[in-house]
Each structure stands twice: as structure tokens, then as C-alpha cells.
């Protein structure tokens, strides 16, 4: 390895500049970003953020759009399922289905003519829900008497 002989290039120059610098500057520590213009940097950041904003906005819009499409698909799916369920309810409550179920549980159409029974006793009173389960009756508030009506009542005037 070759040894460096003589002074390091530029070292004398820097020492000379330091000797001519003001005393305050000679006492300050050299900062790596000392020469940055903060106004310019701020401007660059604002311009950068402004440029990023439409990208972020566009990304959000796209994601919202897909989310809306998914929701619309779900709505369509649910509507389709509702229509199928309605149809199934119709099938399950149809006369044919009721007849089939009746046969399954052993019911048969009556073979003989019906017998009508006339009962000359009034039927039971209709069942009522206990009052405790009913909503409280709305209290009717009477209109308060105005002061001048009270005054008329108080005065011994002929009615």
C-alpha cells in the first residue's frame, strides 16, 4: 500500500478559508443540509403532494366503484333469491302439496255426508290479552285554562 507523502490536497486551502471567516461562523458546526432553501423544499413537497392527490383520489374512486358493483350484485342476488323464496312459499302452500301432506299423515276425504250440529248456547267469550301486556292507554291531557278564562270565572259576571 502506498503511503501518502506530503500534505493532503486541499487541506491548506480549507485552513486558509477558516482563518478568514468571521468569528461567529468559525464557532458554528458545519450542517450537512446547511445550504438547503427551505422555501424551495416546501414548494417541491406541496407540488409533489398535489400531484399525488389525484392518484390517491382515483384509487379511492376505483375501489369505491368496485365496492358499489359488488353491492349491486348482492342486491340483484338477494332480489333473485326473494323471488325464488316467494315461489317456493307458493309451492309449499299449494293445494296439491297440502293434499299430498294430508295423505302422508293418513288423512282421507270424508266418505259420508257431514253432520250439522246446532248448539243453542252462546259461544265462549272472546279471549282477551291481559292488560299488563297491552300498551299503556294514552293519557288525555285537558287543555289548560288560559289566565283570562280563569279571570272570567273568578269575576262575578253573569253567565
Amino acid at each position: 500500500m502506498a503511503a501518502i507523502r506530503g500534505p493532503i490536497p486541499g487541506a491548506r486551502t480549507r485552513a486558509r478559508v477558516a482563518a478568514h471567516a468571521p468569528a461567529a461562523a468559525r464557532g458554528r458546526v458545519a450542517h450537512p443540509f446547511g445550504s438547503i432553501n427551505w422555501w424551495v423544499l416546501g414548494g417541491i413537497i406541496i407540488v409533489g403532494l398535489s400531484a399525488l392527490l389525484p392518484v390517491i383520489q382515483s384509487s379511492m374512486v376505483t375501489s369505491e366503484g368496485f365496492s358499489m358493483q359488488r353491492s349491486q350484485e348482492q342486491v340483484a342476488n338477494l332480489n333473485g333469491q326473494i323471488s325464488i323464496l316467494e315461489s317456493e312459499i307458493g309451492q309449499m302452500t299449494s293445494i296439491g302439496r297440502i293434499e299430498q301432506r294430508a295423505q302422508e299423515i293418513g288423512l282421507q276425504p270424508p266418505l259420508a255426508d257431514p253432520t250439522f250440529i246446532h248448539v243453542n248456547v252462546p259461544g265462549p267469550a272472546p279471549a282477551k290479552i291481559p292488560a299488563s301486556y297491552l300498551p299503556a292507554p294514552a293519557t288525555t291531557q285537558e287543555h289548560p285554562q288560559s289566565w283570562w278564562q280563569s279571570l272570567f270565572d273568578w269575576l262575578p259576571l253573569p253567565h
Binding site: S83, E86, S87, T93
Partner: peptide, 19 residues
């Protein structure tokens, strides 16, 4: 539009549209 259903006088379905 989805076609309306036809029901009997007691609400039993006679015709209904299915998707």
C-alpha cells in the same frame, strides 16, 4: 321490471315471476 304476481282472493299465489 319484475312482473306482478297474481293471487287469489285469500292471497294464495296463482302466478309469480321468478328470476
Amino acid at each position: 321490471a319484475r312482473r306482478g304476481a297474481i293471487v287469489d282472493r285469500n292471497g294464495n299465489v296463482l302466478a309469480i315471476s321468478v328470476d
